[in-house]
């Protein structure tokens, strides 16, 4: 299965050049980053792309590291940050482990070597791994077009199955992740049929603790439609509570109840709730464990 004819291919090296090309070619043009989801679409001829703009050489998309932005510490991930980097970079592993948790679940070594965070987020597969931690970490996404730039919070970024706020003439440039507050821990887990597969369900949680008490949390569930869902009731339940296994079990029960799950080829809705209960508990436990380690 082979792509349909592509009439032109450009590989701009600057963001300016890229957004000009986008403007110029309109809906015929599509951006390619790692291509791990886009090339299959080309092969399936499910996209009417006649011009491919390869963004891999654009320097502005390659930022990676912590910095201070208006006195706030953030981790900046350029859209071209590879899954491999998220899975293995010491900074991510030590300080933002939920990201490396999630990145390690993505596909396989080859996909992680080539695939990018920007590509994954813009592709917006509801069963993908990175949307959940990006939401959990309350990230901000910077999107640029010829008209200028805008920032969007992760909560506003996903519009539906394979749909985001990124317009045809725009490009996602980077993702800013606030450095965790003291006493914060976050974790992610994915249930899948075989290694590297898409999620049956996935759970990501960030919990901020003072001693044994939960100050606040952000909890999201992936592998559900149309995009990852926030567990607001579970978050509310946990807030201010002294955390015990029993409380976490109750939280997991609430989580399993509140998230709308569906039946598909991978699992029934009923069973997804069982998995949510099981892994909701485990992910929360792990996040809290990390939070406590952080307190020490």
């Amino acid at each position: 299965m082979y792509p349909a004819t592509i009439t032109d291919y450009m590989a701009p090296t600057t963001l300016d050049e890229c957004i000009q090309l986008l403007e110029q070619h309109g809906s015929q043009a599509k951006l390619i980053a790692g291509g791990q989801s886009f090339v299959p679409l080309l092969k399936l001829r499910m996209t009417d792309t006649s011009i491919v703009i390869d963004i891999n050489r654009i320097i502005e998309l390659q930022e990676f590291g912590e910095k201070n932005i208006s006195q706030k510490r953030i981790l900046r991930l350029g859209a071209l940050t590879k899954h491999k980097t998220l899975a293995t970079h010491p900074l991510v592993v030590s300080k933002y482990p939920i990201l490396s948790d999630a990145a390690k679940f993505i596909g396989d070594v080859q996909v992680r070597n080539r695939g990018t965070i920007g590509g994954s987020l813009v592709h917006a597969d509801p069963a993908a791994d990175l949307p959940v931690p990006i939401l959990v970490l309350d990230s901000t996404l910077r999107i640029v077009s010829r008209e200028g730039e805008r920032t969007v919070s992760a909560d506003d970024f996903f519009l539906g199955i394979m749909m985001t706020v990124v317009e045809q003439n725009e490009i996602l440039v980077n993702i800013d992740i606030p450095a965790p507050l003291p006493g914060t821990g976050a974790a992610y887990y994915k249930c899948c049929a075989v290694y590297g597969d898409f999620a049956i369900i996935s759970v990501g949680a960030s919990v901020t603790m003072t001693d044994d008490s939960c100050d606040s949390s952000r909890i999201y569930v992936g592998g559900v439609y149309p995009s990852p869902q926030r567990a607001v009731q579970t978050e509310a339940f946990l807030q201010g509570k002294a955390i015990t296994d029993d409380i976490l079990q109750q939280a997991a029960d609430i989580l399993a109840d509140e998230i709308p799950v569906e039946t598909d080829m991978r699992a029934t809705a009923e069973y997804r709730r069982i998995l949510l209960k099981e892994h909701g508990f485990k992910v929360l436990s792990k996040a809290i464990k990390r939070a406590k380690e952080d307190n020490i």
Binding site: A193, V194, Y195
Partner: peptide
């Protein structure tokens, strides 16, 4: 092969 799940080494 994303739906026909042949096991990999890790499975």
């Amino acid at each position: 092969l994303m739906e026909y799940h042949m096991p990999s080494a890790a499975d």
